[in-house]
Design a protein around this nucleic acid. Structure first.
Length: 588
RNA sequence: CGGGAUGUGGCGCAGCUGGUAGCGCACCUGCUUUGGGAGCAGGGGGUCGCACGUUCGAAUCGUGUCAUCCCGACCA
């Protein structure tokens, strides 16, 4: 490909809308352009790269026995009503009407369509197992699209769906897909790990997320350096501490007030009182559909809101407004404690501490660690005061005790007592055992060997393809440009003609370009009449693994130069044949 | 949806104590250059996001609105 014929609108400066390195580079190198928030054009370079990535995925899916098809991006809302997900998906599902006033939506995913398709066309167990997949668009009306292709509204995904006669078959199909995923991500050179996860909107019984480690990842995952245990921060458990570091003075027969003028955060109070943060219990007031909730974790811990939601079995949870906190605790934020909490209307009703029949609508949820030890320092529910020797069962009662804290680096593993580490990661894939969730709601059945009607047992398997491309850029690039491996780079190598006005140089460059192209190499030939620096910088920016530079030096020294992007090394060859055989070795 | 920031030639920015718009890069023409974002000379391009208002006069002040980005709730 001649650069002069191609379309690579590169940018010299960072676009101001991008924050992430990979997002900046994709824009600067002319891979993508944003049309609207979360909606992108893949420019020729980006598309070439995307196609190569898709090809790797396709190969592994095919060799795992999956069969490709393509389903409609525009779907009748009817099938979403049938599955009940019309409401579950809420605003993420973009709805509209056609000219006949019928309801349609843009596909956020394809379980409904695939289940409907299989239901209508597969009748017998003899046709099972069956795994179908596609690579194409999805649209989710995200509340906050961001970071380029990482979280777009319109995005490209590979999704596969398996259909089996029973659970055992599903396990088998699931295993195959998981293995295919391992192959794909190994080929791409990622440092990744599967972690157990919540199924979320898709639903089902069991699911694992494929996480790639990166400091810019939006998710936090916990891994055990000893036994390999890994889970998302919302699922991971650590050994509950027994807090024996409590100072002896805290073990008192009754609560004792401590003056803490103007000290609100645990940090400030701990510093002021010269007492370790682990001796404190943090009381946070939340609001939910069942009323207010007071949640307690140790002073050095963070509450994990997902765990809290799960423990209380609620859907909505957000921090109570400051004025509500004042009404409930009787003190400004920063001085809350678990005792004597009042109803939100500020009535005189007080938590009944003497029996478990809680008369208040404030639910008290404590972390296991709070339960494990007895004497805590908390807020005193009075401005500028904290309270020591606070004991559950004596000074306050709790409604629920559960693991509601986030694991921190350094905690102990529940499996092996090893040390846990919290790392940032990006979710690139998610695989689910759906079971009969969709086949039941959509009434998709087949006949088994006894002639009995049975629901399909399903699995589904996704890879965010655009996100994977951007993650490769994020992980592999530096400030000079993108650095993709040959397998996904838009071009395998570049031939740079440094001076179009020099007949000799041009003759050599043209010959190399023609020879390599006829060898089957995907070559970008920079034949632009621009200064040398611009051309070299552009090639670096767009990230072509190998670069052959033809200039004065080539002619003078009669040597051919190959530059390897990965480590910036240079190799020199006396003859074209030597150069070509090296190139063959590198790119095929 | 809540909190914050920003909208000025293609891109990045300045101008914002009101007086009719400027810089760098890019672009066009010519000549000279070509091993790491070249030089000289000439040139084109902006109803200052949009609307309403204040004013003799608005990029500048006020209100509203839209867009983009960041933080939170959600997810591949």
């Amino acid at each position: 490909m001649r650069y002069s014929n191609f379309f690579i609108p590169s940018l010299k400066e960072d676009p101001k809308e991008a924050v992430l390195k990979s997002h900046k580079l994709l824009l600067r190198a002319g891979y993508v352009r944003q049309l609207s928030g979360g909606i992108y054009t893949y420019l020729p370079l980006g598309l070439k790269s995307l196609r190569k990535l898709e090809e790797i995925i396709r190969q592994e899916m095919n060799s795992a026995g999956a069969v490709e098809l393509s389903m409609p991006f525009v779907q009748p809302l009817e099938i979403w009503k049938e599955s009940g997900r019309d409401e579950d998906y809420g605003k993420e599902l973009l709805r509209f009407k056609d000219r006949q006033d019928r309801d349609f939506c843009l596909a956020p995913t394809y379980e409904e369509v695939i289940t409907d398709l299989v239901k209508k066309n597969v009748k017998s167990y003899k046709e099972l197992p069956l795994t179908l997949y596609q690579i194409h668009l999805k649209f989710r009306d995200e509340m906050r699209p961001r970071f380029g292709l990482m979280r777009a509204k319109e995005f490209i995904m590979k999704d596969a769906y398996s259909f089996d006669a029973d659970e055992k078959g599903l396990d088998e199909s699931y295993k195959k897909m998981k293995h295919a995923y391992e192959n794909i991500f190994k080929r791409l050179g990622f440092d990744f790990k599967f972690i157990k996860a919540e199924a979320g909107e898709i639903g089902g019984n069991y699911s694992e997320e494929l996480m790639v480690f990166s400091e810019y990842g939006e998710d936090k995952i916990v891994i055990c350096n000893n036994c390999g245990y890994a889970a998302s921060i919302d699922e991971a458990e650590s050994v509950s501490d027994y807090n024996d570091s409590l100072v002896e003075s805290c073990r008192q027969p009754r609560m004792t007030k401590l003056s803490t003028p103007d000290k609100k955060s645990i940090e400030e109070v701990a510093e002021y009182l010269k007492i370790d943060k682990t001796c404190f219990a943090k009381t946070i007031i939340y609001e939910s559909e069942i009323g207010f909730i007071a949640a307690l974790v140790r002073g050095d811990r963070e509450i994990n809101e997902r765990k809290l939601k799960k423990a209380v079995k609620i859907k909505n949870l957000f921090l109570a407004k400051e004025q509500d906190v004042e009404k409930i605790t009787g003190a400004p934020c920063g001085f809350a404690g678990p005792f004597g909490l009042k109803k939100q209307n500020g009535s005189v009703e007080v938590t009944d501490n003497s029996n478990s029949n809680n008369s208040t609508n404030i639910l008290i949820v404590i972390d296991e660690e709070i339960k494990n030890s007895e004497y805590w320092i908390t807020g005193a529910n009075e401005k500028d005061w904290h309270m020591a020797n606070v004991k559950h069962g004596r000074d306050f009662n709790f409604d629920i005790s559960a693991d509601i804290r986030s694991v921190q680096s350094g905690d102990k593993c529940v499996k092996c007592q090893g040390i846990l580490d919290v790392k940032n990661a990006i979710e690139l894939g998610h695989i689910f055992k759906l079971g009969e969730k969709y086949s039941k709601t959509l009434n998709a059945k087949f006949l088994d060997e006894k002639g009995e009607s049975k629901y399909f047992v399903m699995g589904c398997y996704g890879i965010g393809v655009g996100r994977t491309l951007q993650t490769l850029v994020e992980v592999l690039s530096d400030e000079n440009g993108i650095n993709l491996p040959v397998s996904v780079s838009p071009f395998a190598l570049a031939v740079v003609n440094l001076n179009l006005n020099d007949a000799k140089i041009t003759e050599i460059a043209e010959k190399i370009y023609a020879d390599l192209t006829s060898m089957g190499a995907d070559v970008l030939y920079d034949d632009r009449k621009l200064s040398a620096g611009i051309k070299l910088k552009d090639i670096d920016l767009i990230g072509i693994p190998f670069k052959i530079v033809v200039g004065n030096r080539t002619v003078k020294e009669n040597k051919y130069e190959l530059e390897i992007k990965k480590d910036s090394s240079k190799e020199s060859f006396d003859t074209l044949d030597a150069l070509y055989s090296r190139v063959k070795q590198l790119i095929f």
